[in-house]
Design a protein around this nucleic acid. Structure first.
Lengths: 149, 149
DNA sequence: GAAGATTGCCGAATGAGATACGGTCTACGC
DNA sequence: GCGTAGACCGTATCTCATTCGGCAATCTTC
């Protein structure tokens, strides 16, 4: 994982459809060499997968909210319960007063309310505190260049 | 945006490297027809871009935190100030006591502290409240199938 | 209800690019 | 000094993306 790898990752994050020739040119390598490096990045797991970024609004995800989930019991083994709700995009165990933080996308606030109801039904959950997003400044992937700093 | 488009989006989210022939087969269409549909999804903006998913840990992003940012003035025009910090992955204006919620990834807690310091330096910011993630259950893209419900 | 226009699909052609391979150079260990 | 491993380059092949003409179904308009 050197500087060239990081530049490759950055370019691929911006556009994974570009040719290996263009990718190689961006870092001063041949297409073959660039291909080989990217293959190894996938092999090592640095690149988890190639995917498409979908506009949430286009598929019924206009309402975004973060929900702090309070609990009366250990939530460390409840990953499945949260994953079962497709509207939940992220679920994290956190340090602090609440025990789990989840990110939720729904098409309406009524559906958000329904998701909160289903979260509340999860075993051990004692309460929820939802924070609705009014405007998203930006959402972007992790910057590979950070490894430099 | 019908059912076929949603299935195409789901398949592309899982693996954007597969051939249009395979993609078409998954929805009962020819490669050409699948290609045409995907082209239109890009054109409409439903597909924003094709990208690679990078393992945060592999590029120095082991520490994840959410930060509630309190302010004394209107933060609606401060998107640039937050975007200037590459460690900030998301920034949202929220309803509630704080005014901005940001998602931060750094390699160490020391760097997290430094990011908090730089957030504090943004004009109008009066305080921050960081919540450190202990364990991530999952992070996944928005499900196109939600549009069905 | 009929003619025209639009849309979505198929199947084939072609051109570009992914992937594999042989050879060269450098760095490193013995 | 010699052998090995790793990274790169240039080339060759072969898959696949992309384009095109043609057809059927649907919608529009009169």
């Amino acid at each position: 994982m050197d500087h060239i790898d990081r530049v490759l990752l950055t370019h691929l994050q911006q556009d994974a459809t570009q040719s290996y020739a263009a990718l190689g040119q961006a870092v001063g390598l041949s297409a073959g060499a660039a291909h080989e490096r990217v293959r190894k990045l996938r092999e090592r797991g640095a690149i988890r997968r190639t995917t498409v970024e979908v506009d949430p609004a286009a598929v019924g995800g206009a309402v975004l909210a973060y929900v702090m989930v309070d609990s009366v019991s250990w939530m460390g083994d409840s990953a499945q319960d949260f994953a079962a709700l497709p509207e939940i995009l992220e679920a994290h165990v956190i340090a602090g007063s609440a025990s789990v933080l989840v990110k939720v996308r729904t098409s309406t606030t009524e559906q958000l309310q329904d998701v909160l109801r289903r979260i509340y039904a999860i075993d051990g959950v004692s309460g929820t505190q939802a924070t609705v997003v009014l405007e998203t400044f930006f959402e972007r992937p992790v910057s590979p260049e950070l490894g430099t700093g």
